[in-house]
Simulated scan of single mutants.
Amino acid sequence: MGVILVTSRSFSDGDLDLVARADEAGHSILRGPAHHDLAELRPLLLDADAWIAGTGPVTDEHLAAAPRLRVVARYGVGTEAVDVAAAVRRGVVVTNTPGANADAVADHAVGLMLAALRTIPDGDRRVRAGDWSVRRGRELGAATVGIVGFGRIGQGVAARLSGFGPRVVASDPFLPEELVHAAGAEPLALDDLFGTADVITLHAPGGQRLVDAERLAGMRPGTVLVNTARPDLVDEQAVAQALADGILAAYAADTLDGDTAASASPLLATELAARVIVTPHLGAQTTQAVDNMGRMSLDDAIAVLRGDAPAHPVTR
């Protein structure tokens, strides 16, 4: 019997009973803290044969504390928090769950676009305060929507937008133009997209800065910016200034720099509340996405413990 350490909060919290699935395969589930504090994890890592890891860091020090570990199954898509090179060096397989939450995040991105264009959260707050005055919004179908990063999620956004009827443009350095056309968008260079779109939605990988003061200055006045990807894609101070200057009409995001420690973010300033929407990592939080991520990560962990190749290996 193998011990599978789980540090994702939502594992087996959907419709699938993944704990029973692990038990049927002859393995037990051991729960650990989602923040991956090494002092707390060390006694748990000592017994772990597999690790289904959430968003916390997986460092070489974590791996060194786990002498029996054979696989780190990342519960989600991004692996930037995992020291993959150290895992490979130690003979530990790394996997992730590509596409598991793509539909959920695409839904959320479109929801944030609509909420920002029609000032829905602000309208709700004003009604509760007794203010029924009307603030005019804009229709999604009349906009040019720019999608930055045209992988599974970006293409899912384009598919959903087709029912609204906007012009859709996309920038992705890894996709041939014919594939962008085939998925329902016009290919544009990144700077051209930022200078053309009325609504821009970010679906690029982290580790890069896509929105800074210079790029914001080249946007159309009144642009709506949506970020359901990574906080480091944007310079939050520059975005706050662009909102104050009227370059941006609204910013809607599912993440902030520092997240739960981001109470000092300039984007949470009271004077910007009417034009900033922030949700607490809700993008992937649907029952279906939770089931997909849990099933894929568990199946890969079980496969490695069984001596088989996992379906979703990560090598770098």
Rank of each mutant, 00 (worst) to 15 (best):
A183L: 05
D245P: 09
D254N: 10
L193S: 04
V88K: 14
D13W: 07
L38T: 07
A269H: 09
V314L: 12
T286A: 10
A240W: 01
P266Q: 09
V290S: 00
R306D: 15
G149S: 09
A240G: 14
F164M: 12
A25H: 08
Q237R: 12
L114P: 01
G137P: 04
G151P: 05
D198Y: 02
L272D: 00
R70D: 08
L256V: 13
M296S: 06
L18V: 01
D232K: 08
V234K: 01
A50P: 03
I4V: 14
V110D: 03
R126V: 04
D49M: 05
D122E: 13
I277N: 01
P266F: 07
D47R: 15
L114T: 02
V168R: 02
D198N: 13
G154P: 00
L45M: 14
V304H: 02
G206R: 01
A262T: 08
G195K: 05
L305Y: 01
V88Q: 15
A197W: 02
G146C: 09
D212S: 13
D192P: 05
D49V: 00
P98H: 12
L179I: 11
G156A: 10
D172N: 12
P205V: 02
V134K: 13
D300T: 10
V276S: 06
G137L: 01
R135V: 15
V110T: 03
L114N: 01
R9I: 11
L188M: 15
A109L: 02
D131G: 08
A284E: 07
G184S: 10
L140I: 15
D60H: 14
L268T: 07
V168Q: 05
A129P: 06
G195L: 06
Q155L: 05
T59M: 05
V211Y: 02
T279C: 11
V169T: 02
L193C: 12
M219L: 12
V234H: 05
G307S: 07
A182Q: 14
S162G: 15
L282S: 08
V234G: 03
T7K: 03
A159N: 02
Q285T: 12
T201Q: 00
L112M: 09
A274Q: 09
G206M: 08
E178Q: 15
V94Y: 03
E177Q: 15
A204D: 01
V180Q: 00
H281F: 10
I4L: 04
L256F: 12
L243Q: 06
V94I: 13
L179D: 14
D13P: 00
D49F: 02
G151V: 02
G258S: 11
I120K: 06
G91Q: 08
L45R: 03
P266H: 10
H281N: 11
A143M: 15
V82K: 00
A252I: 06
L117D: 00
A159L: 09
D122T: 11
Q288I: 12
T7H: 07
E271S: 11
V94S: 06
P33A: 10
P67N: 12
V77G: 04
R68H: 15
L193H: 05
V58H: 01
T97D: 06
D60V: 15
L179H: 13
A217F: 07
D245I: 12
M219Y: 09
D232V: 10
A142D: 15
P57K: 03
V134D: 08
G111C: 04
P173G: 07
G76M: 07
A116M: 08
A249H: 05
A73L: 11
R295C: 06
D254P: 06
G154C: 06
